[in-house]
């Protein structure tokens, strides 16, 4: 049973935890197709979304998930406010504590910052991305999408392609897919491949044809604009030529391989635009859909654990 107080990363989850979250998320994925989506699982609870880094899509997904479960949701855009006034993360945490939130969703540009915050607050914390470290709900929604499409989440060959070095999505996916006993391949230019990653139980290559060979899943990553020109790769067009996903490169994968992307996409840089929209290959829209379901599932489980710990606290 999932007993953790926070969801800070995939690394601390067990196979059973992951399966439990995905099973519940599957239930919510069905539920989200209904006309009346409102539930009261989190009724009376306060959810605060704190984003120290810009995000539209992830923040919206967490907000919808919380609202569908009946929580009172508030968004705090942190890059505009107190951080600029010199307030430390710890002070922010103490301020929040005084408002008695139950669920805190945090994104921060520095690795480990969400964990630091979690140590100082009295509520459940969900990591919505910390630096280059982890983005656990993204990996969970990717896993659910794969499981629905492939019918299983083990013994698959999964190629994660692109800017691995700067990607928390790659790390969380690597941990999750490895734990579920899949073969994970990292594909990308050597300049965007972090040192020592080959010691973390994955295969590494800089050749797309080799990396995609017989793959069941091809997961493309976003290449940040500021990394395109000269610093890590010579140019956008050379990158697209060698590592951008198109029909020809995809032909190396299994005929029924699915194409994934965490979004937002750079069409014509890491992925061909037509391929991204091909409903027979691309599951990119379904990933977004599963995002809400997975976040609802995690919130329900964290709220359950929170209530339990409060009851135990009250009884003694």
């Amino acid at each position: 049973m999932f007993t953790q107080r926070h969801l800070l990363g995939i690394e601390s989850l067990s196979q059973q935890d992951i399966t439990e979250i995905l099973d519940l998320a599957e239930h919510y994925a069905q539920h989200n197709l209904k006309q009346n989506k409102h539930l009261d699982v989190l009724a009376g609870l306060t959810q605060i979304n704190m984003f120290f880094e810009n995000s539209t899509r992830t923040q919206a997904s967490f907000e919808i998930a919380g609202k569908r479960l009946g929580a009172d949701v508030m968004n705090m855009s942190m890059q505009a406010s107190s951080i600029k006034k010199g307030e430390t993360l710890i002070d922010t945490a103490l301020t929040l504590n005084a408002m008695h939130p139950d669920l805190l969703v945090v994104r921060h540009p520095h690795s480990g910052a969400v964990k630091l915050l979690a140590e100082k607050v009295n509520c459940a914390v969900m990591n919505a991305g910390d630096g280059r470290h982890e983005h656990p709900t993204q990996a969970l929604l990717d896993a659910l999408t794969i499981r629905r499409s492939k019918g299983r989440l083990h013994r698959l060959i999964i190629a994660i392609c692109g800017d691995i070095a700067h990607s928390r999505v790659a790390r969380s996916n690597m941990f999750l897919l490895g734990k579920m006993e899949n073969r994970v391949r990292l594909v990308g230019p050597k300049t965007l491949m972090p040192a020592g990653v080959d010691k973390l139980g994955v295969e590494v290559t800089d050749n797309m044809a080799e990396g995609l060979k017989d793959a069941d899943v091809v997961m493309m990553l976003r290449l940040q604009k500021e990394r395109m020109d000269g610093a890590f790769i010579p140019s956008e067009r050379e990158y697209y030529h060698r590592w951008g996903l198109d029909e020809a490169k995809l032909a190396n994968a299994k005929p029924d391989a699915i194409v994934m992307h965490p979004g937002p996409m750079n069409r014509g840089v890491e992925i061909d635009g037509i391929l991204a929209d091909d409903i027979n290959r691309s599951v990119i829209q379904e990933q977004v859909e599963m995002g809400v379901a997975v976040r609802m599932a995690v919130m329900e489980l964290l709220a359950r654990n929170l209530r339990k710990s409060k009851e135990e606290g009250a009884s003694c």
């Binding site: 690394e11 280059r132 470290h133 982890e134 928390r168 790390r171 972090p194 040192a195 020592g196 973390l200």
Partner: peptide
């Protein structure tokens, strides 16, 4: 220091 540990923790590293 760069290496598997730095990569796992997602921290900026130097060789």
């Amino acid at each position: 220091t760069s290496g598997a540990f730095a990569t796992k923790q997602g921290l900026p590293a130097v060789s």
